[in-house]
Design a protein around this nucleic acid. Structure first.
Lengths: 129, 129
DNA sequence: GGTTGACTTCGAGTGCGCTCGAACTGGAAG
DNA sequence: CTTCCAGTTCGAGCGCACTCGAAGTCAACC
């Protein structure tokens, strides 16, 4: 593994593809402070490092679990303040974890409703047949 | 149980409270065709029957599981067409059920990421302590 | 050296799902 | 009879999270 492989840097397009967001969204996330200013090459183009991509990946998971962009920004701000906010960041994640668990429990309840309904339709169809 | 209890009819406000939506939303749902036109009293005010409320409850579960309003409208249209659409409605629910299951699997994966992160924070805090 | 294509910034636009303000009406309580 | 409250319609507005168009720059390839 040579240096060029180890020091990977991706364009906005490549980074977007890897994390499953659009280039628009990546730039917007940066603008919104969800991502610290990304490094640039000599032509002023963004170069995403591996840790940038890891951070973006984490953001996609937070987003997908329903965290509002506002809270992601707050989290990003904490992260930029270094080690002294580790506790706050953990607390933020633990609170979010609780919400995700609640959401999952909700979905399980809702799934029951769906299943009952499917069953009712099945029985009604048989009735008519 | 007398007749007035058995033939319940609720105002928009009462119905809203029962299903956990606002009166604005209830009227909007009707306007959007998610709910068949609700009966009115002599003064032109909506009166929700028990089956109206049951229908609204079902809508809240569909909504909460992430069904777009567009699809809920399609479902409502099918329901209004009577028994001949039973199969289509079941198919719609089964498809939706699949999406909910997928969503739940996704959340479980995301929860793992959260847990790993919480653990990493815990270890980092210990390191600093 | 010209063309192509991916990048840059900026501000404006979009889609979704409500949410609300305004102006009005009508039944019920004091 | 007046006051109050909850309802009515209509169209406009909002918050969120992107998404895009325009105009320009620049590196890479033929």
């Amino acid at each position: 593994m040579d240096i060029s492989t180890r020091e990977m840097s991706l364009t906005v397009g490549e980074a977007a593809e890897r994390v499953g967001l659009t280039t628009y969204t990546l730039r917007w996330y940066e603008q919104e402070g969800l991502v610290a200013p990304v490094g640039r090459d000599s032509a002023g183009r963004r170069r995403y490092t591996e840790s940038d991509v890891n951070w973006l990946f984490l953001l996609t998971r937070l987003r997908r679990t329903g965290m509002p962009v506002r809270d992601m920004r707050r989290y990003a701000e904490l992260a930029r303040q270094g080690d002294r906010t580790l506790g706050a960041r953990r607390a933020l994640f633990e609170a979010h974890r609780g919400r995700v668990l609640a959401r999952m429990a909700e979905l399980e309840e809702d799934l029951k409703v769906l299943d009952h309904k499917i069953d009712a339709y099945r029985r009604a169809e048989e009735e008519l047949a």
